[in-house]
Simulated assay, not measured.
Amino acid sequence: MNSQNQKNEINRRRFLQSGVKLAAAGIYLGMFGMPNLFGNVIMDKGAANIPDVKLNNGVKMPMLGFGTYGLRGEVCQQSVADAISVGYRLIDTAKVYGNEEAVGKAIKQSGIDRKQLFVTSKLWVDDAGYENAKKGFEETLTKLGLEYLDLYLIHRPRGDVKGSWKAMEELYAAGKIRAIGISNFDSEQLADLLSYAQVKPVVNQIETHAYFQQGNSYNLLKKHNVQMEAWAPFAEGRNGLFTDEVFAQIAKKYNKTIAQVNLRWHYQRGIVAIPRSSQKAHIVENLNIFDFKLNHEDISAIEKLDLNKTQFPEWS
């Protein structure tokens, strides 16, 4: 961990309540501004009582999940196992992360019924095209040790997207994938996909956080009933997010952490978020966002933080 990341972690912990509450203590679910922006949010009886959103094909997806970007090997396996043990049911991975095998081992280690999990992976650019996409998907299933995926995404709109989507539609029709979607598609790329897709994507997983709120994509995805999902919901601490005075004041008001305020903000926008951490205390902390509600003043203050530009130019 570099010095900047260490600083981010230290400042995040500054607002962490002494004696982290177990995520399952969020017993007030459903009482605090349940979003209905992209679909019907449904209460589930999962270990952490994380609400689900109903996707445009009827499949239910947890509103809060666990991301694995940057986690490898034993650290990844333990982090995913910890996440499942405290109540996460949505687990997000990708071929290019190089950790599908570790994620699969963690799922097996958890001993949980496969049907209780919502597992997402992604097709990388190298596997674009009809035949390659089918092979890439089978490799992903093998590495994960699963018989099906809950959600499979085209990771980036590169190469033969049309061929990839056709392959994914066939895998979906065959029951190998419960839902198919996209990641990092802009408005024009989404429009192009919709022009030939026989199956509408259920999700677009994109960069969105307080400093890049993606208003245009937000409205467009709502219009097409495609669920918006945030990768890097904390912007990986960039632009000083974990020391931002606006978030610090809101966090203090609710006796919450800056991380929790950020995740609550995503939730109240109706956006699925997949925070990542290798620290169990933070994994638990990130679940405890359902017993408070940001008010209009809070939302307005956060809206003013929007820089309307990516914080990850190297990924553009």
Rank of each mutant, 00 (worst) to 15 (best):
Y267G: 03
L287Q: 06
P201Q: 08
L64C: 11
Q311L: 15
I182A: 04
A83H: 11
G163R: 06
R276P: 00
I271N: 03
Y218M: 10
F234V: 05
D92M: 03
Y254V: 04
N132P: 08
D306L: 11
K200V: 14
I42C: 13
Y69V: 10
S3H: 09
E188Y: 04
T140H: 02
G111E: 08
A235H: 12
R158G: 00
N132G: 15
F118I: 03
S277H: 14
N204I: 00
G270S: 04
N219P: 00
L22H: 08
K21N: 10
V103A: 09
G111S: 07
P35Q: 07
R89D: 02
M168Q: 07
Y254I: 12
R14G: 09
A102N: 13
V125F: 13
S85I: 08
C76K: 05
I283G: 03
K253D: 11
A232E: 12
L287T: 00
F247C: 06
D150G: 09
I180M: 09
A281H: 08
T310L: 13
L220N: 03
L305M: 15
V119A: 03
L305G: 10
F247M: 15
I250F: 09
G111Q: 09
H155L: 01
N99P: 12
A235I: 05
G240H: 10
A24V: 14
P62L: 12
A25S: 12
A251C: 07
F242P: 05
K54W: 03
N5H: 08
I10C: 00
M168E: 11
E139Q: 14
N2C: 08
I250H: 07
S164W: 02
K143W: 07
I299Q: 12
Q198K: 15
I42H: 10
I10N: 12
E170R: 09
D291V: 09
R178P: 01
N308K: 15
E303N: 15
P201W: 04
L171R: 07
I289S: 01
K304W: 00
